[in-house]
Design a protein around this nucleic acid. Structure first.
Lengths: 229, 229, 229, 229
DNA sequence: AATGAATGAGTGTTCATTCAT
DNA sequence: AATGAATGAACACTCATTCAT
């Protein structure tokens, strides 16, 4: 259980400073290390020492810059959300036709989760904590208010053009898109046992993405016009 | 003990015994308490003392009956899976026509998650641990092997009757059904902020279930027969 | 560290009684088991559970018959001393000529220690406890008073016959005999490393006994009569 | 920590710091305290808390500097052996004539044991553990290999000069010297009862040392030359 | 007489946090 | 700004002992 946290009995006297005075860099390194540690172990499971080690700074600096473990955790969720919101903002789906925009959106969500496992795990952790820190964060509450309309806009255009079924609830669709991507990654460990499949192989990933796109398209697909028959 | 440092054990004056001599009940109470505690706080976050308090037994008994915290945790996942597998087994979907069976399945999954939040949280926790304890458990590995074919059978019948689209991958569909139910609950805390909605209100729950049924039906729905046109 | 103390979650219901009502046998089995456990682990290191397991009785019986752990420990030292005193009493060295009696005594001490390692370890343990339990024991204090004169008598006879040097302090000699036998066994673990020798092999044991006999004889050997020269 | 069960760490109002910032001193104090505690109570009987109290440091530092209880115990045996080996090395017996060297050696062993009761008790403890930690220690295994030849050299010189009997096994003699000094102290508690003597009084100690020197000299004393007769 | 379930007081160890340099 | 020694409050786990059957 001690997990290699070897204790050095005597630190090399005259120990050279590992990282000369670059407060900004130190903060970034701490935050990056914290993302990894919290994502891997949750809030209570994460170790301040482990973060300091990973960041290659003195533990004291964490308290200097972030106050305490919980505040650091909060900074981590904020960062992780800021990142995905930035990526979303860079999408410019409004330039694509609705059909393609929807495909692009699903693909984006899928790919983002694939490439940012720390986002999923942090989100899981935060939900286990009943979003306590999300709620505490002014930054996040404000960000949430401004970051929604991705699906709304696509649905509106598709509906207007008559190529999407009318009356689809954008929140429901948005939730569904997220669900079918998110779950695959977050529950991959147990699912791969239950379904006895290698879920992270390239073909498996492609198959799932294709299925998800199909699902979303099936949802928005209009009823066949009965008058044609 | 040595050398006169003897500590006299006070015989707990007037200590009332709370639960006399019911080993089976004790074990059940411990397990129930453990489900709650682990579900609420994860493996590392859970406190053995808290479990003992909740179970109203002496902490020592936990070790008597389950060995240690990790073993207790494993017993908890096993129980939680056993429960859902039992409920699944009681469904007898094969007696329903495929369409209704599918609806019943989605409804079952949805309702089970709604009524057993501890299952979701335990599953989350276990996935954060990369399914370490699931993998260790012979009971679970064997159970997983025998409990799958719910969706398979429905799809086969629906396809045979020509009312479902052909060639649907049952694993993908199964994953999707789970995803669209699971995510709603597991990420309800953050989602309700992001979408600023009360997600656990009765109408919200009904809306979501309806949407999910629709989604699944849309997936299996056959292409309109072009020859008819 | 748990050392195979596997916990049986459910004892076989209707467990057959392992040992039917033989209180005398139970007491003996407890005592024998206790000798082994205390000898192996000392007072604080010994486990009441381990003793019960070894004795194949219910732990409760230990308290029934002996009161508590310390009282059992005391019973163990008493037994261990009673045994060696009995063996000493059976020696009847007074029938041998002094020279042979001395050799027989050394051989007896040596052999007894060799065949009763539990005596040495118990004696060690008790000395670590500053003889607290020896002192408490009326039986032992009385026994000690009556068991001394083995060496005294031999020395007197040898001196009277002129074959032993005069004025040898019997207590010193007795201590020396004990020392040169005892230490070899009690400190065998470290000594075998320090001297890098296999100390418990048959030839090694024989060599040591021979050396010890020689030593004792050298001690009692009279000065060569200067008048003869 | 999760879910508002936060425990506020009280900053120990007005807590005076007893030992400010002297890591080297802290380590020494811990080690000294540990020697006493382990010597008095053995490995399992020793209490980490007691060591911390004796050392007047925070218990946490013990783990900081030594890792855990067993590692601290190992450090203690190493220290205790290092000390006696250093003292041995400072003897320079080779400058004395063989006869005097032997007397000096016995006197040294005797005096060292008298003045360092913790060495004897630690050695006892370690032997009860079957030298497990001695064996684990590279330092000790190497030290043992280099520290032997004290008796060898004396015997060789004495034999060469014709004042010692020929063919004495140095290991046996060395063991005997150690035995006759060691046992007196280690088993003093029980012996003083059995022989009903005050063994630690000054005259008693002197009598024993004299007897021991005599014993060793008797062992090495050559046979009277028969040709002279 | 015999059993095993139940108890309370430790015991080794870890952790977030602060103090002194 | 940066370091690492020091602290106190837990936490998982164990043990001798007693109660109920």
């Amino acid at each position: 259980m001690t997990d290699g946290k070897q204790v050095e009995t005597k630190p090399a006297s005259g120990a050279r400073r590992r990282h000369p005075r670059r407060p900004d860099l130190s903060q970034i390194r701490i935050l990056d290390a914290a993302v990894m540690e919290f994502a891997a172990n949750g809030l209570s499971g994460a170790r301040v020492d482990a973060i300091a080690d990973r960041a290659e700074i003195n533990k004291r600096m964490i308290y200097q810059y972030f106050g305490n473990k919980e505040a650091l955790y909060q900074a981590v969720i904020e960062k992780v959300y800021r990142d995905i919101w930035e990526a979303e903002a860079a999408l410019s789906l409004e330039e694509l036709p609705p059909h393609e925009a929807l495909i692009a959106l699903v693909t984006f969500v899928w790919t983002y989760y694939l490439e940012h496992p720390e986002f999923i795990t942090m989100l899981n952790t935060e939900n286990q904590l009943k979003a306590a820190y999300f709620r505490k964060s002014r930054v996040l509450r404000e960000g949430a208010a401004n970051s929604r309309p991705l699906v709304d806009e696509i649905l509106q255009r598709g509906e207007a053009e008559g190529i999407f079924r009318a009356g689809i609830d954008p929140t429901q669709l948005s939730l569904t898109i997220t669900s079918i991507c998110y779950y695959y990654f977050t529950n991959q460990a147990t699912s791969s046992i239950v379904y006895s499949e290698r879920m992270m192989s390239k073909p498996a990933l492609e198959r799932r993405l294709a299925f998800n796109i199909q699902t979303v398209l099936a949802i928005v697909k209009p009823e066949p016009d009965p008058s044609v028959r």
